[in-house]
Amino acid sequence: MAASRLYAPVAPGIYPANATAAYRSSDKRAPREALIVIPETVSEVSGPRCGRESLGGASQDLTRPSGRGAEALGQRIIVHGRVLDERGRPERGALVEIWQANAAGRYLHDGDRHDAPLDANFTGRGAVVTDDDGRYRFLTIEPGIYPWGNHYNAWRPRHIHFSLFGQAWATRLVTQMYFPGDPTLPLDPIFMGVPDEAARARLVSRFDIERSEPDYALAFEFDIVLRGAAGTPWEGQS
């Protein structure tokens, strides 16, 4: 079969290799065998469509977990942007799920043993569905930098985790958004695991004074680009 693919392979250097020696957790977990290239079939070019029904209890305002009442501690920030595909087409009605540490650099998770305070008014969970232009917006708290056990004196840069689906199984993306000027970025093996410098820079949000709200919150812009089909994706019904 010489048929051209709807989804071109991801160019080298953009996605980090799973076997990244500086990232210790990969040592026993990254597969040693090469990934096997398979023909593109309906299984890869179809995909789940998760919309509002998948939001659960999560909202786009993380600063007040109950939607009202007491507010989380920390610097309020607006995180906004567009979800697009490689051809610049907006991903409409796309589920965007995020999670993050609180302002002190602590996650609301049993596994997080960092000796920093929890915040009773911050869960760190958010979700939203993009609008017709592929836009999303969260109101949250700037997450703290926190230590981790990867190596001596290791610190994770401020980051927010993002999960996205796109149009197909092949476009699924889980990533992390970072903040401009974070001094720990060049020391972080997860961020530095992306080989291509220009690709790495796309993980760093842009400080956005225009969208910052006076006397209230700073804004950061983070556009997310998913793999895009060369043509019209196959109909899922076979």
């Binding site: 991801v10 595909d85 540490a101 998770h109 690709a199």
Partner: peptide
Amino acid sequence: MSALTPSQTVGPYFRIGLEWP
């Protein structure tokens, strides 16, 4: 054309954001 956003690990604390019971 827009340039792809790189992948990053889901990390150890994904249950906060991704658990659908």
